[in-house]
Amino acid sequence: MIGVKAGPRRGSTIARAGLGWLGLAILATVWQLLGMELHTAVFPTFITSLVAAWHVVTSSTLTTDIIPSLERTAAGFLISAIIGITAGMVIGHYETVRDWTSAVVDFMRSLPTPLLVPIAIVVFGINGRMVVVTIISAAVWPILINTANGTSTIEPTMIDTAKTYGLRGRKLFLKVVLPAASPQIFAGLRVALSVSLAVMVVAEMLGGGSGIGYFIANAQQSFNIGGSYGGVIVLGCLGWIFDTLFLMFERRLLAWQRGTVGGLLDV
C-alpha cells in the first residue's frame, strides 16, 4: 500500500461484509421456500440449482464453456478499456474533437446490442471473436463517456501547472490527465465490467457457438431446467468475482483520492 493508514472504520467493514452474506442467505432461503412451495419442474429449488451449478463447474463444461466465456469477457473489457480511455481523453481534452464527435458517440451508444449481434455474426461468424467484438461495441461507451467527462472537467490550473513543468503531448496525458480523471474513469470501468458480462451472455445465447450463455440457452431448449439455473448461479458468481477483483484494484490505485475527500474537511 502507498502510505495510507488503515481507516478507523475497519470493524464496521467486516460487519458490512457480514450483512452482504446475510442478504445473500435471505435470497437463497426465499428461493428455496418458493421452489418447494411451487413444486414445479420449471422452477427448481435453490439447493437443486446449487447442485446443478456444482456439476457445471466440475464437468467438462468448465473448459468448453466457462473458461472461454471468461476469456471473452476479459478480452472485450480490456480492449474496451484501452479504446475508451484513449479516445475519451482525446475527446475530453480537445474541445474541437468533442464538438465533432459528440453526435456520432450519442448515435453509436444508443444502438441496442441484440440489434448488433446479427451483423457481428455475418461479419465474424459464430465464434468467440464475434462475442468479443459485441462486448466492445457495448462496453466501450460508458468508459469513453466517463473518461471524456473526467478529462474535460480537470481543473485548468492543473493543466497549466503541467505545462509549466514541460509536460506535453503523451506525457501530459499519461502523467496528469490520466491520474486526474481516474476517479471518473474507474466509475465508467465498473459499469463497463457489468455490461461486458451481460453482453457476453446475450451474444453467446444468440450465436456464440460455446460459452456460458450458449450453455444456458442450450439447457433451456433441451429442457435441462436444473442445468440452466445452475448456469445462472455460476454466472452470478462470476459477476461477483469480477467486481470484487475490480474493487480491490480500484482501492489500490485510488488510495490517494480517499485522502483528498476526507482530508479537505479539516483543512
Binding site: T164, V176, W256, Q257
Partner: peptide, 23 residues
Amino acid sequence: NDVPKGLAIVFQEYNKSLFPWLT
C-alpha cells in the same frame, strides 16, 4: 511562445496546482 525553461509559476489555488495523487 510557450512557458520557457527558467520560468517558474506559483498559482493561487495550491489545492488545484499540487497533484493530489503524488506525495
